[in-house]
Amino acid sequence: MLSEAPDVLSEVLKLIRLRGDHVFHGELSTGAEVTFSPGPAIFLHLRTGELAVSQRDGEAVLLHPGDFVLLPHADGHTIRANAGAKARQCFDADVSSGSRGTAQTFRWAAGDDVAGSFLAGAFYFDGAPLRSLLTGLPGLIHLTCDKSMEPAWLGAISHFLDVESRAPSPGASLMISRLIDLLVIRTLRMWVSKQGNRTDWLSGLTDERIGRALNAMHQAPNEAWTVKSLADIAVMSRSTFSERFTAVVGLPPLRYLARWRLTVAADLLRAGTLKVVDVAYAAGYGSEAAFSRAFKAQFGYPPSDAHRISRGSIFRARSSELV
């Protein structure tokens, strides 16, 4: 993985700002199935046994001890023992009632045995302006990490999450939130490094030349970038760079740049400390009018309304592409 790639990922993750402080322990007996409704994103680290995890209407992924799963889109999922057999008893999970910073233990049992146990947690991506960028993530990220091959960081973070949640002390909620940040970020870094045939901005992180251009755009979105100047950074001809960037990332270079500029602007407006005109120039727009038109086309309302819109609905990007 190229040296510039973590910088791009860091720029994106800084705006996402994860929020999470809920950890729980789960046990399933043989023949049990538990369904999690849509809500927060979930991670799961299997400790013992074998369990199968599936998204709604998706194929089951079999987990072995040490395996880790991240479900970033919060669309709901199912965990079951004995993937090939019909469940003898089905449960609906309710893991939201516990106090912050204190782990709960849930036992979903169809019998007396334990088919699998895990440590899991819930979190939110507190950065809805990046929703269009986060579509590059799959609904389920599976890290195959048997006990002999488990990365040191995964075992360490999981261990400290367990310790902090089982014996909470002052500051435990903040500590758990920070540990979840680390866990999710390290998971995304490991997953990105293994991608080779995707078409989105994430795949651009593993392409050395395209990664240079991505890094430049992310580090200085207000720069007057052109396809030629970006191609020079990538050490490619203009036409070759444009074709390669579009093939790897899925958008032409300047369209991707426009999306990133608006993403940065949305985050600045959310803070409510800068005037719209200042945000426009910080995002690389030559005039407030041009910025306002582009912002409304992407988010559905003018930038002047951004700060007062409720956190629950703020910055819901339209599904249409930027023009």
Rank of each mutant, 00 (worst) to 15 (best):
L174A: 13
R316H: 10
Y281R: 15
L274I: 02
S304F: 14
P65K: 09
E27Y: 06
A290S: 14
A283P: 13
T273E: 15
F24S: 00
W225N: 10
L182P: 01
V249S: 09
G49W: 04
K86R: 06
A306E: 08
G155Y: 13
W225H: 14
V235C: 12
R212S: 07
A60S: 06
S158N: 11
D200F: 13
F241L: 11
W108N: 06
K296T: 07
P252S: 11
R189E: 15
L15P: 02
V61F: 09
A317V: 07
D94W: 08
S287Q: 00
T226P: 14
F245S: 06
A120M: 12
Y285L: 09
A109N: 06
A271G: 11
S237Q: 13
R107P: 08
T102I: 10
F123S: 05
S319L: 05
S158A: 15
L322R: 04
S117R: 12
A266Y: 01
L70M: 13
L9M: 10
R259S: 10
S169E: 10
R56L: 12
E208M: 08
L254S: 05
L134P: 11
R270H: 12
L274A: 03
L251G: 00
V264R: 15
D146L: 08
F123N: 03
E11H: 15
P302S: 13
L63F: 01
Q298C: 15
V53G: 02
